[in-house]
Amino acid sequence: MPWTAVTTEPSQLGESPFWHPGERRLYWVDIDGRQVSRVDPASGRVEHWPMPTEPGCIAPVRGGGLVVALRAGIFMAREWGGTLEPVAQLPFDPATERANDGKCDALGRFWVGSMHEPKAGPRQPVAALYCVDARGAGPATVRRMLGGVATANGLAWSPGGETLYWCDTPTHEIRTWRCDAALEPQGEPQVLKRYAPKPAGWQPGAAVQPGQAAYGGRPDGGTVDAEGAYWSAAYEGGRVLRLSPTGEVLADVALPVRCPTMPCLGGDDGRTLFVTSARQGRPAQELAELPGSGCIFSLQVEVPGLPVAFFDPGRR
Rank of each mutant, 00 (worst) to 15 (best):
243 L>H: 10
132 V>K: 03
48 H>G: 03
197 P>W: 02
273 L>N: 02
83 T>Y: 03
9 E>Y: 00
114 S>D: 10
301 V>F: 12
310 F>M: 09
15 E>Y: 04
135 R>T: 13
109 R>N: 05
262 M>V: 01
218 R>V: 10
285 Q>L: 14
258 R>H: 07
265 L>V: 05
243 L>D: 10
156 A>D: 10
157 W>Q: 03
242 R>C: 15
307 P>F: 11
148 G>A: 11
177 W>L: 10
311 F>L: 05
188 E>M: 01
66 L>M: 10
228 G>Y: 07
134 A>Y: 05
19 W>H: 03
72 A>S: 15
127 A>P: 06
122 P>I: 00
72 A>M: 09
25 R>C: 11
22 G>T: 08
77 A>E: 14
113 G>F: 09
137 A>C: 01
88 A>C: 10
169 T>V: 01
51 M>T: 15
271 R>Q: 13
298 S>C: 15
100 N>G: 08
50 P>M: 13
39 V>Y: 12
95 A>N: 12
314 G>D: 06
227 E>I: 00
288 A>N: 11
144 R>H: 06
16 S>H: 06
272 T>P: 01
204 P>N: 07
256 P>V: 06
194 R>L: 14
164 L>I: 06
267 G>M: 13
158 S>V: 11
39 V>H: 09
266 G>W: 08
274 F>N: 00
80 W>I: 07
188 E>L: 07
278 A>C: 10
92 F>H: 10
300 Q>C: 12
223 T>D: 03
44 G>P: 11
50 P>I: 09
228 G>N: 07
77 A>R: 14
12 Q>C: 02
170 P>Q: 08
254 A>F: 05
101 D>M: 03
144 R>G: 05
36 V>T: 02
168 D>H: 05
4 T>R: 14
266 G>L: 09
70 L>I: 13
217 G>D: 04
123 R>D: 12
211 G>P: 06
204 P>S: 07
289 E>W: 00
36 V>M: 06
29 V>S: 04
109 R>E: 02
257 V>P: 05
113 G>Q: 12
218 R>D: 01
297 F>L: 14
61 V>M: 11
275 V>Y: 04
308 V>G: 03
248 E>L: 07
239 R>G: 02
99 A>Q: 13
193 K>H: 13
250 L>Y: 06
23 E>G: 07
131 C>F: 06
134 A>I: 04
72 A>L: 04
24 R>W: 04
304 P>A: 12
296 I>L: 15
194 R>S: 15
304 P>G: 12
127 A>M: 08
63 G>V: 14
65 G>N: 11
42 A>F: 00
161 G>V: 05
275 V>P: 04
28 W>N: 09
124 Q>P: 04
70 L>P: 10
144 R>L: 07
259 C>P: 00
269 D>P: 02
186 Q>K: 11
88 A>V: 07
95 A>W: 00
106 A>E: 11
139 P>T: 13
195 Y>Q: 15
78 R>T: 12
170 P>A: 03
269 D>T: 03
87 V>H: 04
259 C>H: 11
292 G>P: 08
10 P>V: 02
85 E>C: 04
177 W>F: 07
277 S>C: 01
111 W>G: 02
121 G>M: 09
279 R>I: 04
207 A>Q: 12
58 I>L: 13
75 F>Y: 15
235 Y>H: 06
159 P>W: 11
174 I>S: 10
287 L>D: 14
134 A>C: 08
255 L>T: 14
5 A>M: 10
90 L>H: 07
167 C>P: 08
49 W>L: 15
